[in-house]
């Protein structure tokens, strides 16, 4: 158990390190020009400098803040509306149907509309993130609530649970595995769409990672482009491993759902 766990981490680290070495070697050996493909050492130098002059940390902060705002709105709207859709056919046949259609739309496609409606502004980016999150959350919540075994509700009713108590203490926790799936998907959509929005929408209210990427390209600074790309990957991984994985693992042990 312990042994396989350490081995499980060793191999990925070695392989990433080996790839970086090969990359560095190829770039140096064949003298690939910087504006086509920079060496890892160049990217590292950019990252070091960008951290030192605070441009990178501040960009990460700006991006994460936008993401959190949009994501929070998406959760606050998506989960209750999803529950309404599950409970009332009026909501299911109206907003539910709308959600079914709109979640098929890649969230990047909201960017042009957002710019026309809100101009090059923070609101435009927030709008894109919310649109990326909310539809899949509505659908996941609705599906989750509808697939709860009715016996849970019957048992709760005999014990005196009704109305709001039933929603908070029975329906919400029973649907949580599905809702969590929706939250993960919503997060992935939000992250992707925000990057697109930041590349599209250049605002003066704050430079995010997308904008940093965009200016890297404008300046033909490939060190910056690759550097920012790797930061984007890293942020995505950290959120997945630090936030979603622990919740999922907890859920698995409590519910006894088979998994790794």
């Amino acid at each position: 158990m312990n042994r396989s766990k350490t081995l499980g981490w060793t191999l990925p680290i070695i392989s990433v390190f080996a790839m970086l070495c090969i990359w560095e070697f190829v770039v140096r050996e064949f003298s690939v020009p910087d504006y086509i493909m920079p060496a890892p050492s160049g990217v590292a130098a950019y990252l070091w400098g960008a951290i030192a002059d605070n441009s990178l940390p501040s960009a990460i902060w700006v991006t994460v803040k936008r993401l959190m705002q949009g994501y929070a709105i998406g959760l606050a709207v998506g989960i209750p509306v999803g529950m309404l859709c599950a409970r009332f056919s009026l909501f299911r046949d109206t907003i539910g149907t709308l959600a079914l259609g709109l979640q098929a739309l890649p969230s990047v496609c909201w960017a042009p509309l957002a710019i026309i409606w809100f101009g090059l502004s923070e609101t435009a980016m927030l709008f894109v993130v919310v649109m990326g999150t909310v539809w899949s959350l509505i659908l996941a919540t609705q599906h989750g609530v509808n697939s709860i075994p009715p016996i849970y509700m019957r048992a709760a009713r005999t014990m005196g649970s009704t109305g709001l108590h039933m929603w908070i203490h029975v329906i919400a926790p029973a649907a949580f595995p599905s809702i969590l799936g929706g939250m993960k998907q919503g997060w992935a959509f939000a992250w992707r769409s925000l990057m697109a929005a930041e590349i599209y929408v250049t605002v003066l209210t704050g430079f995010g990672l997308g904008q940093l990427l965009h200016y890297g390209r404008e300046l033909m600074d490939m060190n910056q482009v690759i550097g920012v790309m790797s930061v984007v990957i890293l942020v995505g991984l950290v959120v997945d491993k630090a936030i979603f994985s622990p919740i999922e693992n907890r859920l698995r042990t409590r519910w006894g759902i088979a998994g790794n």
């Binding site: 849970y152 048992a155 005999t158 014990m159 029975v170 926790p173 029973a174 949580f176």
Partner: peptide, 29 residues
Amino acid sequence: GRDRMVMFQEHALFPWLDVFHNVLFGLKL
């Protein structure tokens, strides 16, 4: 009503609560 409790064929216990909190569920109400 609490004066009549039901046991079903399926146990109908709540998987999101541990054993103790399942027993506590009706008492909390």
